[in-house]
Nucleic acid binder design. Structure first.
Length: 271
DNA sequence: ACTTCGACCTGTTGGC
DNA sequence: TGCCAACAGGTCGAAG
């Protein structure tokens, strides 16, 4: 489900409700996620205040004085803010209840997400340690992508979806950014010029920023913390449009698989 | 060091 | 209408 814009939408939605608020209780109904929900979470988090809610790539970090709740939404996870304790559904695995009475509810049908309690410093955590730069920071530019891609035979699409290269770009936005940049997704990453990477870096930023502005992309089940969908789907140029006409040149969009992910592009507009 | 691929899950969709 | 295979927004870790 969620790529950077959806996670950022979630972060912005939750932040006002949890920042500076003290946790009173944690209920874990289903600990079996990608990794087991840290067994000590329900014991350690209550009584502590969420000082900051940060995002690193697609991870959300709820920071307290004594440790961090490190979460990922996987493919189908979402957080919702409840103002009353609603009866939990089948996939409502964890509730974080605040002294204000507010409930932060984690829901995840496929259970690919995680909620890990990391005591003390989070900086050196294995899951975060080798992540590449944030795409919306100045660290991501044409120079960086060019340098990082030399000698790589993998396709440019697989390359930009690699979190060690740059975080946050999943299948939707990789397809979209490459279309906007006019680059064929099958092209070897190591054979693309610095000039073209400059264009691509620019397009990545533009696409992600545009999507964040619209509250992310809802394909079927992504909702923000209030349960509402994002509206970037209607702006998608290639993702989900296989077999349909290219919006630029009207040629039929082609679908192939790269790195086991569906890849849609225009053979005329993307070279 | 790099690349590919299976695995983890449930729910939805499309073909027959 | 039903059944079943294929596929879905992610990514780790093993194997090549």
């Amino acid at each position: 489900m969620p790529e950077l814009p959806e996670v950022e939408t979630t972060r912005r939605g939750i932040a006002p409700y949890v920042t500076g608020k003290r946790v009173s209780k944690v209920i874990v109904r289903q600990p079996s996620l990608r990794w087991p929900v840290t067994p000590t979470l329900a014991r350690e988090l209550p009584g502590h205040t969420i000082d900051k809610l940060e995002r690193r790539g697609k991870y959300l970090l709820l920071k307290t004085r004594i440790g961090t709740l490190l979460t990922h939404l996987g493919m189908s996870g979402s957080f919702r803010v409840l103002h009353t304790m609603e009866i939990p559904g089948k996939h409502d695995h964890v509730d974080i209840i605040f002294e204000s009475g507010l409930v932060l509810r984690y829901s995840d049908p496929r259970r690919f997400g995680c909620l890990l309690w990391v005591p003390n410093s989070i900086e050196s955590h294995p899951l975060l340690k080798s992540l590449g730069p944030e795409p919306l920071s100045d660290e991501l530019d044409g120079e960086y992508l060019y340098r990082k891609s030399r000698k790589k035979v993998a396709s440019v699409k697989v390359f930009i979806m690699d979190a060690k290269v740059v975080v946050g770009i999943g299948n939707i936005y990789a397809n979209e950014a490459l279309f906007m940049a006019g680059i064929n997704p099958t092209r070897a990453a190591g054979k693309i010029s610095q000039l073209r990477y400059r264009v691509l870096a620019d397009c990545i930023k533009k696409i992600l920023n545009k999507s964040i502005k619209k509250g992310g992309t809802t394909l079927r089940d992504f909702t923000n913390v209030s349960g509402n969908p994002g509206y970037f789907k209607q702006s998608l140029q290639v993702y989900g449009r296989s077999g349909m006409a290219c919006r630029k040149c009207k040629k039929i969009l082609k679908e192939i698989r790269l790195g086991q992910r569906s890849t849609i592009y225009c053979t005329a507009c993307q070279k």
